[in-house]
Amino acid sequence: MRIADITFRDKPLFLAPMEDVTDLVFRSLCKDFGADMLYTEFVSSDALIREVEKTRDKLILRDSERPVGIQIYGKDPDAMVEAAKIAEAAGPDLIDLNFGCPVKKIAVKGAGSGMLKTPDLLLEITERVVKAVKVPVTVKTRLGWDENSLIIETLAEQLQDVGISALTIHGRTRSQLYTGTADWEKIGAVKNNPRIKIPIIGNGDVTTAVQAGECFDKYGVDAVMIGRATIGRPWIFREIRHYLDTGELLQPLSMEEHVDFVKKHLCANVEWLGERRGILHTRRHLAVTFKGLPHFRDKKIKLLQSSSFEEILQLLSEVGEEYKDFIPSEVQCNNDSLSNEPDTTQQENQ
């Protein structure tokens, strides 16, 4: 499978761009566990051209991440073009345009999935960005604004015609947010359209190795993108890759492996961001990693409320000792639990 000149192995696995999640540290962890393609948190075009420091920091990339894409969003064509040029200068392997974020304060202003209500403008922005940069341009979007405007099949052809190199489809409409289930039949319909020649990447509700295998085999997608199921559980990439390669399921991580992973993540975050911000960036994952442990509520509260690096390390060691003979069950990432996850696409400060 190829996106322009970027070559991937068969049945590649992509990490979805998620605000406050896919920072440099988390991307590196996912890479270590076998993710084939990484994306930054999504970046506001307006904030980028105004040189907001926190936004500029999102463009920091490491060669060890490659291939890696920078995702930008916005609704003004001139701003999107200028932001794309700034993003290109940071050295990504591609630029991805976000036309899928469903968060209200973004979508109702016409950006993210709000662009699905103005497809002509969406296509204008895409075409202008494609012409403005030398790296491949890809798009991530949804099926349509709502059930009465399922435009994805026509839109996919139009996006291909204006020059994008790949299309990622989340199998929901904007009005669904993250409720219900992703419609992979509609993703498959786009992939199986004989006029479509660019890679189609499927996204939505993939939480297990078996599900990922079915998405490849049943719907024929070129790659599977995984988002919320990676939170607190980036080893899902290793589980899926093992299953795709061997047809066998891996055993769940031991408690020792769980604790070692969280310590590694915490230490890397603190080293990169400092103690306060590093702890904050780890909390979202802490809330999920130990899900399923019996009588864990009090310990979980302490972990999530502590603002001390040393205290959290001590608490994690206590968890490892207290539950050393317990084999953690896999996180139960069914659709209901996913829809209750903290929102990972909050608009950045502008």
Rank of each mutant, 00 (worst) to 15 (best):
W272H: 15
Y243P: 01
N349K: 10
L249W: 09
G34P: 00
A268S: 12
G274W: 07
I86F: 09
A156R: 00
V43S: 02
K134H: 10
A229Y: 02
E51N: 15
A287S: 15
C30F: 00
L280G: 13
H242N: 13
L286D: 10
T154A: 11
I169C: 00
K324D: 06
D57W: 06
A35Q: 02
K302Q: 14
L304G: 08
V43G: 02
R276C: 10
L61M: 11
I95Q: 03
E321M: 07
L303D: 13
N192P: 11
I187H: 05
R172H: 05
K11P: 04
R276I: 13
D93K: 02
I236M: 08
C267A: 15
R277I: 07
P199A: 00
L280R: 12
Y243R: 01
I236T: 04
Q350K: 14
N203S: 12
P136V: 04
S337I: 01
M80E: 02
A132K: 02
G91C: 12
Y39Q: 03
N148A: 12
R66L: 10
A35L: 03
L123R: 04
K140V: 07
G34Q: 00
E41C: 03
M225G: 05
H281D: 14
F261P: 09
D23E: 15
L273D: 12
V262W: 08
Y73N: 13
